[in-house]
């Protein structure tokens, strides 16, 4: 059966609502399912489980924290990735800090889902951010699934986890479809990466939609006799350092492609880990958005500041040439 990424998210939400009465969804336009992620769920579960909210992101994000403190497992859908800037206080300074600050008296199992993160064609400066590195930096568990099966499995694990978890579903991955045996859909543990393609010459680390670009680049390069291993960490934080180490031990060359701004981004962290721990035959490379990037509207400009396949291929050639 074909399963689309979007349908996988929808299925994960429906399954968790069905098995756990403490799970409920809240967010803007989720009754009408404007983003399609919650399609059919209001009709199935009713207004107490699928809570349509006014445009009050800060209050409803804290509301979810309060509901979690009272024993529920809220899942918030944010239609726009940049809204996470508006609720950074509520996620980072509130939800994330309660466990430590109370000496472990409570837990805050809230999931924040962003369907359509990163650039969406034509949505311009304030709707096109991809701030997963920010959440990793502050220590909030953060996942960026690449495939429908992982979208299902990581969202389920995020909901079942006892801490706040942010789930980025990249716009560039929402259209991906997989051949899936529905009976094999299962939770995917947080913090465990996967080898998306095995290879021997260079390890390419990619997340979300960029995994598909990395796989395409690997196909392209295989005709030149270059064998690429694509490592998909799936979870940005905590990073599967051991899984990455295993891959790099084999290839001894590393390139990271990352849809974050360059400074202090996810790729910067992976390269720092590599510098501390890995034995490489060539300096590692990263392909990212430029420093301080704001995505301009015109499509050619938007594409010009996003990390892409051509830059990735150039970076792979560079690490193969250097010794």
């Amino acid at each position: 059966m074909k399963l689309s990424y979007l349908k996988a998210l929808n299925r994960a939400l429906g399954d968790e609502l069905a098995v756990d009465p403490s799970v409920f969804l809240l967010g803007e336009d989720i009754r009408a399912a404007a983003s399609n992620v919650t399609a059919g769920l209001y009709e199935r579960f009713g207004s107490d489980r699928v809570l349509d909210t006014p445009l009050s992101e800060q209050a409803f994000t804290n509301f979810a924290t309060g509901a979690a403190l009272a024993g529920l497992r809220p899942v918030i859908e944010f239609q726009i990735p940049s809204l996470l800037f508006l609720v950074f206080e509520q996620i980072v300074n509130q939800a994330h800090k309660f466990s430590l600050m109370t000496g472990g008296q409570c837990k805050v199992p809230v999931t924040y889902v962003v369907p359509g993160s990163g650039s969406r064609t034509g949505w311009a400066g304030q709707h096109s951010d991809h701030p997963y590195s920010l959440f990793a930096h502050v220590g909030v568990k953060t996942v960026v699934p690449a495939t429908p099966s992982d979208a299902y499995g990581l969202l389920v694990s995020a909901i079942r986890d006892d801490d706040p978890v942010v789930v980025f579903a990249p716009s560039g991955a929402l259209g991906v479809r997989d051949d899936v045996d529905f009976s094999t859909l299962a939770p995917v543990p947080l913090g465990v990466g996967r080898i998306a393609r095995a290879g021997t010459d260079v390890t390419v680390v990619a997340l979300g939609h960029l995994v598909h670009d990395a796989l395409a680049a690997a196909d392209e390069l295989s005709s030149l006799g270059i064998s690429i291993e694509v490592f998909d960490p799936r979870t940005v934080y905590p990073l599967d350092v051991d899984g990455l180490a295993e891959s790099v031990a084999k290839t001894r060359r590393l390139v990271v492609i990352d849809d974050s701004n360059r400074t202090s981004g996810f790729a910067a962290e992976v390269l720092a880990v590599a510098a501390e721990r890995f034995d490489l035959d060539a300096p590692p490379r990263r392909v990212t958005r430029p420093d301080g990037a704001v995505l301009p509207f015109a499509l050619a400009l938007d594409r010009a500041v996003q990390p892409g396949r051509d830059q990735l291929v150039t970076a792979i050639h560079a690490v193969l040439e250097e010794r």
């Binding site: 994000t61 804290n62 509301f63 509901a67 509520q90």
Partner: peptide, 24 residues
């Protein structure tokens, strides 16, 4: 449910907690 050092933050947390308790 905790003292909160961010002015105005707890009102929405308390609202969520009360709503959730009633729902349960």
């Amino acid at each position: 449910l905790g003292a909160n050092a961010i002015v105005g933050a707890a009102g929405s947390i308390a609202t969520g907690a009360a709503w959730a308790a009633r729902r349960q």
